[in-house]
Design a protein around this nucleic acid. Sequence first.
DNA 1: AAATATTTGTACGTATGTATG
DNA 2: GCATACATACGTACAAATATT
Lengths: 86, 86
Amino acid sequence: MPIDREGKLPLYRQIANELRRDIEAGRYAAGRRLPSENELAAYYEVNRLTIRKGICLLVEEGLCEKVPGRGTFVSEQQAALSARSA
Amino acid sequence: MPIDREGKLPLYRQIANELRRDIEAGRYAAGRRLPSENELAAYYEVNRLTIRKGICLLVEEGLCEKVPGRGTFVSEQQAALSARSA
DNA sequence: AAATATTTGTACGTATGTATG
DNA sequence: GCATACATACGTACAAATATT
């Protein structure tokens, strides 16, 4: 159970950490689409806006890119990085 | 620099005064939408809830009307008033 | 072409917790 | 204790872009 509601870390940061871990572990291939915000919200049992806030951090880090109407995608560079380290 | 954090007036009252001034100065046309709460929060560098509290005063005064999910709009009457005084 | 579904984007509404004066 | 202010989180509604049927 990844998310700790009693923890000190805000949920959206925990979400960001989880997703970052998954990306860096290569669980999402180069340019692949992440699950939709609604799917992630259902999976982690948090509000969709909390997911968005977490993903926003990853976008700022350059790990992800969002495309309106399409989804959120793993940045190519990041995919290359995790492939290299794998 | 409109907002004075050292002043005696609470921030939300200062915000209300600023917005009221802008409306009465005709800077927002009849029925026009104000900047979103988030935009105002960024502009004045205060929390969104502080903006909300300030706008709430204007709504009580009849200067503005809020529409859930759409925004805050200048009341038509008020627009007429400021047009008259202009 | 049209209608529908999916997905991200935006905006207000509400509640709780924390900190400060 | 109370008012002010901020951070977090969820709720709800609708718009815009895209994809599908």
